[in-house]
Amino acid sequence: MVQAKVVDENTQVFENVVCPFCATLCDDITVQVKDNKVSKVNGCNLCKGVFLHAHEDWTKPMIDGKEVTYDLAVEEAAQLLARANNPLIYGLAATDVDAQKKCVELADLIGANLDNASSV
């Protein structure tokens, strides 16, 4: 595992980072992080867009627009899916393989439709 270089107390530099934006999947990105925000990154503009804004607009667990506990959000999802007749699972193209595997397993369990961005 590649270790981050520590510049000062609050700043770290990560090298050979993979850019999770397009399927060019560049793996030579250097990312500087200050106070858990990316302060510098050397990829293309699309890559900069990902990293420089990564700390913004984080989601919170919600049901019907109201903030709830994490467990409650997950429980609500399970209840909805346990009762679903014809569920759809869609996406997968912008996350990692572990999550993709779990999406297939969930689809298998509940008899869902499963699709990724290949068909679009």
Binding site: P87, L88, Y90, G91, C103, L106, N113
Partner: peptide, 10 residues
């Protein structure tokens, strides 16, 4: 057709 949807990273 779908009556519930799960959207993962899309």
């Amino acid at each position: 057709e779908p009556d519930v949807a799960v959207i993962v990273a899309a």
